[in-house]
């Protein structure tokens, strides 16, 4: 309820923010606070300093550059939901973002915060993985790019160094792809028990490319590669989709907790993958 006392700073540049992190290994970045503040209030974490990024202008906003969608890490979910460039170039992000939390959460929570928090039950990590997004991090040594596949390391753990900040996310254009974020949660506003982010590109009547990533099926978001391989190259009819979806839980290690037992999650992954692919493939 009452966090352990901490210092608070609100820099206006990424460089200043990184400098604070570099100087103090116990400092922690505050983005929208939708995950961090509950953790602090429950005293599950006790950072020395919170580095609030809200005043760092360069981290806000959406743009299109070199045919890619670039989303600033501090862009809120609500801003993404109302952005026509997101809707045009990566509608899967908009679809998944619409299921995040509730209206209040979406107005405070940020895209980059959600990815950096790397909760395997969060909606956006699996989406970033399915889209093969690139994470752009800034640290004392400058900028570096991290593919989404390398970014999510483990439960609440990313490839970011303690003194790095996720600055922006570059997302390849998937206009024209079929897509679906199929989320299953116990309540209207709740974490996913399991969710499936699916993208299907059709060409010449067949399935030319398939991307499936799973939320809450391991300690990090995972690609369902067996599903992707099984569906790509087929004609994408319901038989092919059902057969492919049967591979959805292969190689996963679903959690076993109050939100769902492992065997139930494995079952859900297969059902939801079939549904997601059915929508994404237009079958």
């Amino acid at each position: 309820m009452i966090p352990v006392a901490f210092e608070y700073t609100r820099p206006s540049t990424v460089e200043d923010a990184v400098a604070v992190l570099a100087a103090d290994p116990d400092a922690k970045v505050l983005a929208g606070g939708q995950s961090l503040l509950p953790v602090l209030r429950l005293r599950l974490a006790a950072p020395s300093t919170l580095v609030d990024l809200r005043d760092v202008e360069s981290l806000h906003g959406v743009r299109v550059a070199d045919g890619e969608l670039v989303i600033g890490a501090m862009t809120t979910h609500a801003e993404i939901l109302h952005d026509r460039r997101v809707a045009e170039h990566a509608p899967l992000i908009a679809a998944a973002t619409a299921t995040v939390g509730d209206r209040q959460v979406r107005h405070l929570g940020t895209f980059g915060g959600s990815l950096s928090h790397a909760d395997p039950a969060g909606d956006l990590p699996a989406v970033a993985l399915a889209l093969s997004a690139t994470m752009v991090a800034v640290g004392p040594g400058g900028r570096r790019e991290i593919p989404a596949a390398d970014f999510f390391v483990d439960y609440l753990t990313t490839a970011l160094a303690p003194d790095e900040i996720l600055a922006e996310v570059r997302v390849p254009d998937t206009a024209g792809w079929g897509y679906r974020y199929e989320k299953f949660s116990r309540m209207a506003q709740a974490w996913a028990v399991v969710a499936v982010a699916a993208l299907v590109r059709r060409a010449d009547g067949g399935v030319a490319d398939t991307r499936v990533a799973l939320t809450s099926m391991a300690s990090r978001p995972v690609r369902a590669t067996a599903v992707e391989q099984a569906l790509t190259g087929t004609d994408g009819d319901s038989g092919a989709i059902t057969a492919a979806a049967g591979h959805a839980d292969e190689g996963t290690e679903p959690p076993d907790d109050v939100n769902g037992a492992a065997d139930y999650r494995a079952h859900l992954a297969r059902v939801l993958t079939r549904r997601a692919l059915t929508a994404a493939a237009g079958a």
């Binding site: 116990r186 309540m187 209207a188 506003q189 709740a190 974490w191 907790d257 109050v258 939100n259």
Partner: peptide, 16 residues
Amino acid sequence: LTTGTMVDYTPPTAAD
């Protein structure tokens, strides 16, 4: 108690 927060205890809202 493993359902010691609103998130885990899941009381319904109007949307449910």
